[in-house]
Design a protein around this nucleic acid. Structure first.
Lengths: 218, 218
DNA sequence: ATTTAAATGTGAGCATGCTCATTTTATTGT
DNA sequence: ACAATAAAATGAGCATGCTCACATTTAAAT
């Protein structure tokens, strides 16, 4: 059982490695699941024992990058003081860790995490989003549900977090097409975006309108 | 020749009508191109003489909405004074005209304007975006290329327009899932977003960094 | 009218993401 | 060892967006 589990994990890694190579070489949409299976040395059907959809496969790669980025960020966050410094650093580290996949990112973003048949939705993208936003919440100063003591902190509403994610996606989109050697343009946009977000947060601090998060049924 | 052209236009309209109905009834991804062809009374292949991709078909519907919205907006824009009032009105009218398609908008956005095979990219989405942004540019005060005389106007850089489109897409995404009776939540977000955008514009007026639009090759 | 050429319609067929009944392999029980 | 059972692998096959060689219709020319 132990050995099998380990073998499974190794298979998974091998699939991810081969897929990443093919994606880098030929792009996301030009690489078929059959290609990936063949490169890995397994049958097409087996591939889907490891990843529910082709989209989940890329998202697994993305997830690894985000996790690594998160770890590095937590190690180096000391020294950053202001909220927008923290947010900038957090996002910038993520981008850096994603860099190996930038070549086909546009391709992935364009197919929009979109599958073809039967509208399979696995929620992987959602999970990544929520994880990222959880960290953002903490950086802003509100750790999910607990009330902060003393110092005045910024409390992001659901709309605020939606705005954050929108801005982050905008940066990602730009980044995907930013061919400048170190994506300096993207970093400029990121800086602008994060500052804007914090300004928006601070601006609504006083006139706090209490807008709900989820949609109202009816 | 005249008659034929008219017939073609009518066929096109019929396809659009049937497609819209099916999309509303069953969603975008659950409606097959075969379904649409059958409902219209044409062969599957014929459908693709009118629209290059299934995506183009929805975008044609979207395009109609945007055009109608544009017309209505131009008629009623008098009275709106500030830039953010104009931008808000412009976007809000567009949303209202899109309303009939809101039920499956999430579906469309999720498949991200993403095709499956061979990565067909027709540029329809791009055209819609550019058209919309052109109007935005004018509303801000810069009519493509001509230098304004006298009064100080806001000049959006490429990055600014990227930011605008990002925010607009964010609003669209929220709107797609906003079940409140008249999408009031969406309008609140839109208001916030447009104000934020204008603030961002005004903020950068003085320290004008001259950031280029397109990516730098190399 | 008849011929001709261009435009349009047609549906079998392809590529591909994904499924599932079947086969193969690994683990457990005796 | 061997049988029994659970887990994993397999690849033929399905659904669907789209293509393309051919058929049909239409418009123009004579």
């Amino acid at each position: 059982m132990r050995i099998t589990a380990k073998a499974k994990a190794e298979n998974r890694m091998k699939i991810l490695r081969e897929a990443a190579n093919l994606f880098k070489k030929h792009g996301f949409s030009q690489t078929t699941t059959r290609d990936i299976a063949r490169a890995t040395g397994i049958a097409t059907g087996t591939l889907f024992n490891y990843f529910a959809t082709k989209e989940d496969l890329v998202l697994a790669l993305v997830d690894i990058c985000f996790k690594d980025a998160e770890a590095e960020f937590q190690q180096r966050r000391r020294g950053r003081e202001t909220v927008d410094e923290l947010l900038f650093a957090h996002a910038a580290v993520s981008l850096r860790h994603l860099r190996a996949h930038r070549g086909y990112a546009e391709d992935v973003l364009r197919t929009g995490a979109g599958s073809s048949r039967k509208n399979r939705v696995t929620g992987e993208a959602e999970r990544i989003r929520v994880t990222h936003l959880d960290t953002v919440k903490q950086l802003i100063g509100v750790s999910d549900g607990t009330s902060p003591e003393g110092a005045q902190k910024l409390s992001p509403t659901g709309l605020d977090l939606h705005l954050y994610w929108t801005l982050f996606l905008g940066v990602l989109n730009f980044w995907a097409g930013d061919e400048s050697p170190y994506q300096e343009e993207t970093l400029a946009l990121l800086d602008q975006s994060m500052k804007l977000f914090v300004e928006s947060l601070e601006g609504r601090q006083k006139s706090s309108l209490e807008v709900n998060d989820g949609p109202i049924p009816g």
